[in-house]
Amino acid sequence: MIKALDHIQLALPAGSEDDLRAFYCDALGMVEIPKPAPLRGRGGFWANAGELQVHFGVDLDFHPATKAHLAFAVADIDALARDLADKGYPVTWDTALPDVRRFFCNDPVGNRMEFIAAPV
């Protein structure tokens, strides 16, 4: 039986690692961690988002995830939205769920991300 989520993986096109590091590490504050030596030649990179490990893997037939997405709970959703927009990553607020403050933002290669205000 499943006990926990070990990690998530996002696909990226070859050569886009620096753009994605700028988004996920610099803008969102994830911390890059070393990939195991046997996997380093595959491209991509790994990062921690709090206790969650995120693997970014090269897909030679890359197509961005425009419906499927990750949803991150964040402490200060307004500050993050401003910061992302200031860095050139447009955000789209969504009010479909009246009790949930959230917005969507695409990463530099078009993968859809959701950001939800964490409960206070």
Rank of each mutant, 00 (worst) to 15 (best):
I2S: 10
I2R: 04
K3F: 09
L5K: 08
I8V: 15
I8F: 12
Q9W: 05
P13R: 00
A14G: 03
D19N: 14
D19M: 13
L20H: 07
A22N: 03
Y24F: 13
Y24L: 02
Y24A: 01
A27P: 06
A27R: 10
L28D: 01
V31D: 09
L39Q: 13
R40W: 03
G41I: 04
F45Y: 12
W46R: 04
W46K: 05
W46D: 12
A49D: 01
G50A: 13
E51C: 07
E51D: 15
E51K: 10
E51L: 11
L52T: 14
V54M: 03
G57R: 07
V58L: 04
D59Y: 04
D59W: 07
T66E: 12
A68L: 02
L70K: 00
L70M: 13
A71R: 06
V74R: 09
V74K: 11
V74Q: 11
D76Y: 08
D76M: 07
D76H: 08
A81F: 05
D83K: 15
L84T: 05
D86Q: 13
D86G: 07
G88Y: 03
Y89R: 08
P90H: 12
T95P: 00
L97A: 09
C105W: 04
N106H: 11
P108W: 03
V109Y: 04
V109K: 05
I116R: 04
A117T: 06
P119K: 10
